[in-house]
C-alpha cells in the first residue's frame, strides 16, 4: 500500500505549493523500512519517513496503529521494553541511532520527549527543569538555564515566584508546559510529543498548541495526535498510519498537511479524516 516514496511526493508538493518553503531544508531524522517488533509480534512495518528541520510533523491514525511505537523508536525509548526490537534504519543527521556504537543515553538527550500524561518529577519546579541538565553535565549558569527554559515553555511568568514549590502543585496544562521546559533544558534538536494534549482541557490544549508553534523556530517537532483538528491546525507535514490485516502499523500516506486534509490520495486516508472509521 504505502509504496509511494514520500520523499519524492514532498518534493513535488513543495514545488507546486505557493510559498513552498516547506520542502527547503535538511532532514533532522529519517527512517527507511523501519519495523518494530515486540517479541515475535511486528507492531510497525516498513516505515519510511523524513522529518524536516524546524518543521512540525504530525503522526495520525486510529488507536493501536503503532503511532506511539514509531515515535518511541526515534529516541530509543522502546529499549526500555525488554522484548522490543527495531529493524531497518533510523537516521539522525545521517547517523543510524541503532548502531552498536551509539549510546541510547546520548540519543535521548538530542531527541527529547514529552509524554501523553504530564509527568513532572515529584520535586520542585526548579529541580524539574534543572535535573536533566545536571545529569547531563551542564556547565553553564543553572539559574539562567532554568529561566530560559521556562520562558521558552511560556511558563515563566506563572511560576517565577514559586520555583521551590512541587511541580505536582501546578495545573495539568502547566505541568505539561513544565515537562516541555524540562525537555528544552537539555537542548535537544528534536522534540517528540506523544499526544501531549490528550489529558488536557481545551484551553490548556490551545496554549500547548501555540507553544508548539513557537518552539518550531528552534526545534524539529514530531507529534502524535488523536485529534485531527490539532494535526490540521498545528502541523506542517502529516503522516497517516493504519494497521494492515496482521495488525502491524504502516504508513498509508505522508505529505504536506494541507494536502493530506484537503486532497488525500488514498481512499483510506479520506475515510479516516472525514470520520468514517477509526
Amino acid at each position: 500500500m504505502a509504496t509511494d516514496d514520500p520523499g519524492i511526493m514532498i518534493a513535488r508538493v513543495g514545488t507546486r505549493t505557493p510559498g513552498g518553503d516547506l520542502a527547503i531544508g535538511t532532514h533532522a531524522m529519517e527512517t527507511t523500512d523501519m519495523s518494530v517488533f515486540y517479541g515475535s509480534f511486528r507492531a510497525v512495518k516498513d516505515v519510511s519517513l523524513q522529518f524536516r528541520d524546524h518543521r512540525i510533523t504530525a503522526l495520525i491514525g486510529p488507536s493501536g496503529c503503532g503511532k506511539s511505537t514509531v515515535l518511541r523508536a526515534f529516541n530509543r525509548m522502546n529499549d526500555l521494553v525488554p522484548t522490543a526490537r527495531v529493524e531497518g534504519r533510523v537516521l539522525f543527521h545521517g547517523q543510524d541511532i541503532y548502531e552498536d556504537s551509539v549510546d541510547p543515553v546520548e540519543v535521548r538527550r538530542r531527541v527529547g520527549m514529552v509524554f501523553q500524561k504530564p509527568n513532572p518529577f515529584p520535586k520542585s519546579i526548579y529541580d524539574n527543569v534543572a535535573w536533566g541538565a545536571k545529569v547531563n553535565g551542564y556547565q553553564g549558569e543553572m539559574n539562567d538555564l532554568v529561566e530560559q527554559s521556562l520562558r521558552q515553555a511560556a511558563l515563566w511568568d506563572e511560576v517565577k515566584d514559586k520555583l521551590d514549590q512541587s511541580g505536582l502543585s501546578l495545573s495539568g496544562g502547566q505541568q505539561q508546559r513544565l515537562c516541555i521546559a524540562r525537555t528544552i533544558a537539555v537542548t535537544p534538536e528534536i522534540i517528540l510529543m506523544d499526544e501531549p494534549t490528550s489529558a488536557l482541557d481545551p484551553i490548556a490544549t490551545l496554549r500547548i498548541e501555540e507553544l508548539i508553534q513557537e518552539l518550531k523556530a528552534r526545534y524539529t517537532i514530531i507529534i502524535v495526535t488523536h485529534n485531527m483538528q490539532q494535526a490540521a491546525r498545528a502541523s506542517d507535514f502529516t503522516a497517516f498510519l493504519n494497521m494492515d490485516e496482521d495488525r502491524a502499523g504502516q504508513v498509508v500516506e505522508f505529505g504536506v498537511t494541507a494536502d493530506i486534509f484537503t486532497r488525500p490520495k488514498k481512499q483510506e486516508t479520506e475515510d479516516y479524516i472525514t470520520g468514517r472509521f477509526g
Binding site: E106, R109, F115, F121, W131, V135, N136
Partner: peptide, 25 residues
C-alpha cells in the same frame, strides 16, 4: 509509576541516575 522512569530516561539520564534521583526517593 513507570512514567517517572520514562521521564528520567527521556532526558538522557542513565538508568542508575534515574533510579537514584526519582525511583528510590
Amino acid at each position: 509509576p513507570r512514567s517517572l522512569r520514562q521521564a528520567g530516561m527521556a532526558l538522557g539520564a542513565t538508568k542508575w541516575q534515574t533510579t537514584r534521583a526519582h525511583v528510590l526517593p
